Amino acid sequence: MSENWLGRTLELEIGPVAHGGHCVSRVDGRVVFVRHGLPGERVRAEVTEDKGGAFCRADAVEVLAASAHRVTPPCPLAAPGGCGGCDWQHADPGYQRELKAAVVAEQLQRLAGLSREVVVEPLDGGPLGWRTRVRLVAGRDGRAGLRAHHSHRVIPLDDCPITVPGALAQPLSRRWKPGTELEVTSDGDSRVHVRELSTVHGRTRGRQLSGGEAVQHAADRDWRLDAHGFWQGHPLAADTFARLVAKWAEVPQGGVAWDLYAGVGLFASVLAEQAGPEGLVYAVESSRRAVSDGERNLADLPQVRWRAGRVEHVLADAPKPVDVVVLDPPRKGAGRAVADAVAEGEPDRIVYVACDPAALARDVAYFAEHGYSLTELRAFDAFPMTHHVECVALLQ
């Protein structure tokens, strides 16, 4: 077992970016994942985690030779030992997108064997004031905040510069019972919804403090849905992705499409418009509240047939053959079983919306086993200042 380096300060040169909001360095044969540094920099880094394996984690606490892309973070809490909500505030926005592009390309190469140039596109509005959904927790002093990176320690907030202005005013203005969790959503009409979460006998319960039903606007529709159910966190993301899905899906009139992990039916709505009244869109979603909201929002599109259940459990009964499949899985991806089931439907086109590049690359490799090739890929900086990136892929 390696000597434990926890608390040790290392002088090192930072190497390439890695998935997860850090860069890679090597010291005495060990990999060191360094946060708050940039490729090519020389830093002093303090080891923050060492479990005795081939790698450890560290924070760059002093920059000895800075990158030309380094900037002063707009939030003083985006620093070693501070808030874990942002990863790249110390890099200029253009370089942040270059780092994310490098991560997507590396994951595709490593996990899917594909060499592809990737460009991460910005969404309008800039890198601050975009975040519409925040989950806060109250610390020991009752102040609400966010957790430190890889820690349960709560960093109290006065505000958050990446969050929609004013959205946190209510929950940050008072004290809470320590450990209380709060879900905050700012909707498309700038209404703020706050829900308090509590855990009793292992079960989490929510108590709505303000709002409850959100209004969102995307794909030429007004949506009414559970304020704390799934919706994109960036105000422009839902409409941007819906329009791209419509462009790539090309469902024929009278055709059949599957919308998997459908949420409230954002993509089902554009697929149904393409398929027309004689077509069919099979929308699968595990959240029964989302299905109920989806049925209500798309009541004018009877060609959308809803199914509540886990995707991997219900595809055996899905209408086949299918012309187009759209899937927007959670961060862990769809997985081999879902990829196999999708391939059994023999779609001409698969449009995959992904919030994790590693999961996307693994699933692209699974689809390749069934003869599907990645023909188009666009990546979007839908989460500026963080390491997260959204990709939309077309497989044929």
Rank of each mutant, 00 (worst) to 15 (best):
W176G: 10
G265W: 00
H387K: 10
I162E: 03
M385S: 05
G126A: 04
C160N: 04
P127W: 11
D356F: 12
A45H: 10
P165D: 10
V32W: 10
D348V: 02
A58M: 05
P165L: 05
V353K: 02
A227N: 00
A227G: 03
V281A: 10
P277E: 15
R42D: 02
A334R: 02
A359R: 00
W223S: 01
A358T: 05
G113N: 02
G52E: 02
G94D: 15
R336A: 14
D28L: 11
V392S: 03
V63H: 09
W248I: 05
S210A: 15
I350H: 07
L111I: 03
G279Q: 14
V251L: 13
R116V: 12
R205Y: 13
G21F: 04
L172K: 12
C160Q: 03
A68K: 12
D28E: 15
A343I: 01
L315W: 02
A379E: 01
C83P: 08
L114C: 01
G309P: 00
L146C: 06
D50Y: 08
E46V: 15
G81H: 03
V104M: 13
R305W: 05
R175D: 07
D226L: 01
A60T: 04
P252H: 05
C355G: 02
C23S: 14
D348T: 10
P329E: 08
P165G: 09
G7R: 12
Q396M: 08
A237V: 11
V104R: 13
V118W: 00
A169E: 15
A365C: 01
G309I: 00
H313A: 15
A393G: 06
F380N: 02
